[in-house]
Computed example of a mutant assay.
Amino acid sequence: MTDRTLQHRRVHNLLLIQKLLSVRGDSSPFTLVLDTIEQTAKPLISHYIHNAKSSKTDIVFISFETIKPPSNITTFIKARRKDASTLQKEISTIISPNKRTLLIIDTLHPLSHDPTHPLSTFLSIILTPTTSLLATYHTDIPLPPSPTNPYAPSPLTNLKYLATTIFTTHSLDQILARKRAADKSQPEPVFGLAEEKDGVLVGMGANGCKGLVVEMEHRRKSGRGVEETFFFPVVGAKEKIVLLDDYPAFRREDERDGKVGAEGGKEGLSTFDLGITERQRRDREGVVLPYFDAQSGEGGVGGRILYDMGAEDDFDDEEDEI
């Protein structure tokens, strides 16, 4: 990838992620966040709340598993042990048709296996032209098959189909560990449940305090998809959101130290010197190449091959003279 292409990708995708976080216009009516026990979506939700508050957007937090209301939200709804119909009516009374509102659902699992009220119907009712939805789905919590139709697609499949933006969270420390192993051509390490060890639920480096890695898939109205991976720092940190390829700890050491030379190549990427000294250049010019004498004849006579016969050669006089 050329520097110009990388710069265009960097500027374009960073502007896009800022637009999504600020909930400006109808950039993404339904944003789905996929997280695991290895990396919770709470830091990403904090970024949404921080940016929505700056843009003076009402924030309605619908809680199924969150006990303490997050700071800087407008309304906190306790949805635990409420059916979809009751929750839908409560949300409708709070949403203002004249002001932009961000709905945040901390988990979709209680709504995903409700046979009396399909999840797609619930989402279509609470979404309005002035409302944006940010919902979290825990991918490591299994759901039982549908009792009415065992051949129906899973709730996660339906959610991925309905969402206009999909965020997948990853642990920063675990991503860096896999990157170091890949750079050394070593097997990638596994963490948490993938280790298949008794008593191990969360792996080393899970839910780190430095930030997280967010994989984005955004679908435009034209149908064209935009995919990118970002580093998200903790809200309030001095660091900024950058592409994962630009994060210093993720880049290889030779890429961090390499500098662009005068001819556009990268210096410092090789372990040996590609240049030659003045003495080496003079010695190279003094070397006589094989059959060099054949090129010293007069012009117009064509090339000649000089060959000295040995005692073991059998020369045939009838062949054409070379």
Rank of each mutant, 00 (worst) to 15 (best):
T277K: 10
I241F: 02
K238S: 10
L289C: 05
E267K: 05
Y247R: 04
T277G: 15
L243V: 11
F292T: 04
G223D: 00
E215I: 00
A294E: 06
G265Y: 10
V301K: 12
V301M: 10
Q280I: 07
Y291C: 06
K210Y: 06
M216Y: 02
L212W: 02
E278M: 11
D283N: 12
R252I: 00
E255V: 09
E217D: 10
G236W: 00
S296F: 05
K259L: 10
G297H: 09
G286C: 05
F230H: 00
L244F: 10
E215K: 09
V288A: 10
P233E: 00
E267A: 10
G223K: 07
T229G: 08
G223S: 02
L243F: 10
R282D: 15
F272T: 14
D283R: 09
V235F: 03
L269V: 15
D273G: 08
V214N: 05
K238A: 12
E253M: 03
L212A: 11
P290N: 07
R279L: 12
M216W: 06
A249W: 02
P248R: 06
R219D: 01
H218G: 06
Y247V: 08
G225P: 01
V213W: 03
L212D: 05
K210M: 04
E278R: 15
R251E: 02
Q295G: 12
E239Y: 02
F250D: 06
D283G: 08
E217C: 13
H218E: 00
S222C: 07
K266P: 01
D283T: 04
R220N: 13
F230Q: 06
G236S: 05
R224W: 05
G211D: 00
P233G: 01
Q295N: 08
D245A: 15
R252D: 07
E253H: 05
V234L: 06
Q280L: 11
K259V: 12
Y247D: 06
S270L: 13
S296A: 10
E267I: 11
V288M: 09
E217A: 12
V288I: 13
G297M: 09
G236M: 00
G300L: 03
K240T: 11
G299N: 03
R219N: 07
L212R: 13
E239D: 14
I276E: 15
R220F: 01
A294D: 04
K259H: 09
E267C: 10
